[in-house]
C-alpha cells in the first residue's frame, strides 16, 4: 500500500473501519488524559497503541468499550462510532457495547472458579444455555488452550500458569463472540515464551476479530500490528501503518520514541 502524505490518521481505503474516533477528549475531573484524538480502527486488523507511561493509551482503550463508565470523575467529549453507531449516545446500552467489544486485561484475572465456568459464564448470563459445552470448547480452541486443559476443565483456573491464565481470559472474551477485542498490555505480566504464544494467537484471531492492543513494548507493536498509533501526553502524535510508523515516521517525536531514545 502506498504511503500518502495526507493520509495521516486514516486507514487504507481498502480497509473497512469498525471503530471511528472523532476528536475524542477524555478528562479525569478537569485533568485531560486524552486530547482531541481522531483515528479509525480497521476491521479484522490489529491496531496497536504505543506511547510512554501515563500517555493516556489505556484510558483511550478503555473508552472503546465504555469501561471508563466505572470511574465517576471520567468524562468524554467527541464521538466514537462503532459500525456507524455512536458508542456514547444516550440510547446506546453500555452493557451491550461490552458484549460486542471484549477486553483482556494487563494481569490475567480469571474468576476464582473452574476453567469451564470461566469461559461459560459470559454466554450463560446472556441466556445461551444450549450447546454451552461446544461453545466453551470452540473458544478454548481459538485461544489455543484446548489441548492443555481438555482433560481438566473442572479444575480451578488458578491452577494454570500465568500464560495459560491469560489465554483463558482471551477464551473467556471469545466465548461472547465479540467483534472487537481490546487488549491492555496483555503480555506485560508474562514470560517471553508465553508472550510469543499470545502473539501467535493474535495472528490467528485476526482472521475473525478486530484487535486493539495497548503495549509499551515497541518490538511487540512492530511484530504483531497492522496499524500503530503513537500517543504522547494524551495527544495522538502519529497514526499509520505499522511498517511506516516504525521505518519512516513522519514526526521526530515518533522517531525518537520508536528508536528508544525516551520513554
Amino acid at each position: 500500500m502506498e504511503y500518502t502524505p495526507n493520509a495521516d490518521q486514516e486507514i487504507s481505503e481498502n480497509e473497512q473501519p469498525i471503530l471511528q474516533l472523532e476528536d475524542v477528549t477524555i478528562r479525569y475531573g478537569d485533568v485531560p488524559a486524552v486530547q482531541n484524538v481522531s483515528l479509525a480502527i480497521a476491521r479484522q486488523q490489529i491496531t496497536s497503541i504505543i506511547g510512554p507511561s501515563g500517555c493516556g493509551k489505556s484510558t483511550l482503550l478503555r473508552a472503546l468499550n465504555r469501561m471508563n463508565d466505572f470511574i465517576p470523575e471520567a468524562n468524554i467529549t467527541g464521538r466514537i462510532l462503532y459500525m456507524g453507531a455512536e458508542l456514547y449516545s444516550e440510547e446506546t446500552d453500555p452493557v451491550d457495547v461490552r458484549r460486542k467489544i471484549g477486553m483482556v486485561f494487563q494481569k490475567p484475572n480469571p474468576f476464582p472458579k473452574s476453567i469451564f465456568s470461566n469461559v461459560a459464564w459470559g454466554p450463560s448470563i446472556n441466556g445461551y444455555r444450549e450447546g454451552i459445552e461446544d461453545r466453551v470448547e470452540k473458544s478454548l480452541r481459538r485461544a489455543a488452550l484446548w489441548e492443555e486443559v481438555a482433560d481438566r476443565l473442572h479444575d480451578s483456573a488458578s491452577s494454570l500458569s500465568g500464560g495459560q491464565q491469560q489465554r483463558l481470559c482471551i477464551a473467556r472474551a471469545l466465548a461472547m463472540e465479540p467483534e472487537v477485542i481490546l487488549m491492555d498490555e496483555p503480555c506485560s505480566a508474562l514470560d517471553p515464551v508465553s508472550t510469543a504464544r499470545i502473539e501467535d494467537l493474535m495472528f490467528e484471531l485476526k482472521k475473525r476479530y478486530t484487535i486493539v492492543i495497548v503495549t509499551h513494548n515497541m518490538q511487540q507493536a512492530a511484530r504483531v500490528s497492522d496499524y500503530t498509533a503513537f500517543l504522547e501526553s494524551g495527544k495522538l502524535v502519529e497514526f499509520g501503518e505499522t511498517d511506516q510508523v516504525f521505518t519512516r515516521p513522519r514526526h521526530n517525536r515518533t522517531e525518537e520514541y520508536v528508536t528508544g531514545r525516551f520513554g
Binding site: 486485561f105 480469571p110 474468576f111 476464582p112 459470559g122 448470563i125 461472547m176
Partner: peptide, 15 residues
C-alpha cells in the same frame, strides 16, 4: 474482593 474480577465480568457485558 479484587477489582480485577469485577472488571473482567463487566467487560463480558454483565450487569
Amino acid at each position: 474482593v479484587p477489582g480485577s474480577i469485577r472488571q473482567a465480568a463487566f467487560a463480558l457485558g454483565a450487569t
